Amino acid sequence: MHYGAVADGKTDDSQAFLKAWRDACEYYGRSRVWIPRRVFFLNSVTFQGPCNGSMAFLIKGRLKAPTDPRSFFTETWIGFKYIDDLTVKGGGYLDGRGQAAWPYNDCYRNPRCKPLPATLRFDFITNSKVNHLRSINSKNTHINLFACRNMEISKIRMTAPASSPNTDGIHIGLSSNIKISRAVIQTGDDCISMVSGSRNIEINDVSCGPGHGISVGSLGRSHETEYVSGISVRNCTFKGADNGLRVKTWSPSLYSVASNLTFQDIVMQNTGNPILIDQQYCPFSGCDPKVTSRVQIQDVTFKNIRGTSSTRVAVNIQCSEDRPCKNVKLIDIELAYNGRGGQAMALCTHVLGSSYGKQIPKGCI
């Protein structure tokens, strides 16, 4: 069954979208909401289930977010919640118009900053797909996954200026069996971030940069029992990113575990910190450098990582004195420093592991 969103394209079209969703969701069978090739203006909306059949949300047009500051301080622009067998696709544009909101983002110095909306937020979504979309200038994260299971995200392009704050491409928490592939992510924060409770995440064929790299963490600030495990990042390219492959834990932190992390067949092009484990992560003031992280990092493999580093320390593995990293492997690493001041370096602290094959810079394990 096909339901179209009927709207005038000049005023807030949220109610028309919600009506089309409710009609489709109540139908017993396969339903879809069709967004035609026009411009639509939406305030914060959440499309909620459960529905009586599989759902498709097909975006052909351009959806535009509000620029009135009174509409900024919420966690969601377009949300989907409690739905099984959902498809969101269509080739359309999601324009977060973040330029109006970024000056309000002071999270880099204020841990109690007000929320800004994720462009797409998925909560408690299962057995679903997101593909063939473009998200531009998000106010905050482009795509946020929370408590999701069995999702595929592919053929997505996310762009925001390198200077835009907290515009992560894809942020994943408390979710499992997530596959991300064939994506181009150019943002002002992590291209992909995986925090507490992320399990069995497969990332393949992603181009990252500008941005802060593909990150596991930050971990250990809360969620003591929600471990991270089974992360696979393969066949990805980093172009001018501030970081490459990064694992970061808060210091100080609660006890937690990050294990079975594989980073393989990666190309770095003028990338800062290509390989980085940072267990002294603390972007805010007031941290005590004498207090170490209690997050246990173990079973980590970096294999066939090659290219150029924009920072001299191309391999930087700084683990916790309290809980040293265990079973870290460096296999066939070839990273050249493209700046002045000497050749690339590798620094390792409180790490137990081994090195195999080519090691440029010379391995520190």
Rank of each mutant, 00 (worst) to 15 (best):
L219Q: 00
R157C: 11
S135Y: 06
S310V: 03
V295P: 02
G197H: 03
D190I: 08
R340Q: 14
I178R: 02
D322C: 06
A65V: 05
A56Y: 08
G96P: 04
I266H: 04
H212K: 13
E202S: 08
R294I: 08
I297G: 07
F73C: 06
E226N: 10
P69W: 07
S163W: 11
Q359S: 04
S71K: 12
L261K: 08
V313M: 07
V45Y: 02
F47S: 09
V216K: 03
D322T: 15
Q264G: 07
N127E: 14
G4S: 14
C364V: 05
T67P: 02
Y27M: 09
C236H: 04
N243M: 11
P36V: 13
K329W: 06
I125W: 00
P66S: 06
K114D: 10
I275M: 05
R221G: 15
E334G: 12
L120A: 01
D68Q: 07
G90P: 03
D332P: 03
N43C: 08
S175C: 07
L276A: 08
E321K: 12
K19I: 14
D168V: 09
I231A: 00
Y108D: 14
I275T: 04
F284Q: 14
Q99K: 13
Q264W: 00
R199W: 01
L120P: 00
F41D: 11
I59N: 08
A5V: 15
P161M: 05
I231F: 02
C191W: 05
F40E: 01
Q296G: 03
I305R: 07
G9I: 06
V216Q: 04
T126K: 10
D278M: 06
T271A: 01
C319P: 05
D265T: 11
E321Y: 09
G92H: 00
A346D: 05
F41P: 09
F72L: 06
R112F: 15
I143V: 13
R37Q: 14
